[in-house]
């Protein structure tokens, strides 16, 4: 039965399957990076600068003679966790924030949601750059600033969900039983709103990695010489004659984010009952 279901899913969602396989591949690369990389990603070799791809250096070498392939491989250990952390933190903070606003309502709701409106009215990348410039340019700060510009959409979504759930009978029952409001919120309301939030989060993973790389490209992500994909593209963009320096990390960013997008779309189709009924 289960096998049939999986087969049917694959048949119905070929893109999502490819996406999932690619993502799994990247995760394996991240886990086994030291085994896969052919060189030390930070080792410089000045005798070997800017060499094109060859059988020794699959993706060539960069301006410092570092092996681009190994750097791309080790880059998975930066970009993937960064993307996950951004989404997880945004989800937790935005989710609780939105739930509180939606559940307690009235003035609190007004105030909290206007704050959300304010944050959302800034272009997110520009706001992230400004914050990164203020906080200083490190990898953890890059994650932090993306969370700071991302949480509002989770807050909005959660608030909407809570507003619906708040009116259901089981919540009324909990109120009738005399439960504390805060207890009802965390034990009854939020658990019933989590699924759609997770769908949104998984669909956002690709975008989070993309934004993190964007900050890295602008020199606001992980400090050099960390093999961060965005920063590598930026390094390579300074010397377009050596195309391999930027093309391979760029391709890695593209493949990972598009794969996550495929998975996110499929998950939405699968888990969101409203969307499923529409088909």
């Amino acid at each position: 039965m289960v096998k049939n279901k999986i087969l049917r899913f694959i048949k119905k969602n070929p893109l999502a399957t490819i996406g999932a396989l690619v993502c799994i591949l990247f995760f394996l690369v991240a886990i086994f990076a030291p085994l896969i990389a052919t060189h030390d990603p930070l080792a410089q070799n000045f005798a070997n600068r800017n060499r094109p791809p060859s059988s020794v250096h699959f993706f060539g070498t960069d301006n410092f003679g570092r092996d681009v392939f190994s750097r791309v491989v080790y880059g998975t250990r930066i970009s993937l966790p960064a993307g996950f952390l951004v989404v997880i933190f945004s989800c937790i903070f935005g989710g609780i924030y939105g739930a509180v606003a939606g559940y307690f309502g009235k003035m609190l709701d007004e105030v909290l949601m206007r704050i959300v409106d304010i944050v959302m009215s800034f272009p997110s990348l520009v706001l992230a750059m400004a914050l990164a410039a203020v906080f200083g340019k490190t990898m953890s700060n890059a994650i932090l600033v993306i969370v700071l510009v991302w949480w509002p959409k989770y807050a909005r979504m959660m608030r909407g969900l809570v507003l619906t759930v708040r009116e259901t009978e089981y919540v009324a029952a909990a109120v009738a039983l005399g439960e504390k409001k805060s207890h009802i919120l965390f034990s009854t309301v939020i658990p019933n709103c989590v699924a759609p939030l997770l769908v949104m989060a998984s669909a956002d993973l690709g975008a989070a990695i993309l934004m993190f790389s964007g900050l890295g490209f602008l020199g606001m992500g992980a400090a050099p010489p960390a093999p961060e994909w965005g920063a590598m593209v930026s390094d390579g963009a300074k010397m377009l004659n050596y195309w391999w320096v930027s093309v391979f990390p760029g391709a890695a960013i593209f493949i990972v984010s598009i794969s996550f997008n495929f998975i996110g779309d499929a998950l939405r189709d699968l888990l969101d009952p409203k969307l499923r009924n529409l088909e």
Partner: peptide
Amino acid sequence: AFMDCAVKIQSDLK
């Protein structure tokens, strides 16, 4: 590029 010098010296000192 200042950053290139920094990265090179970083690797030398390592």
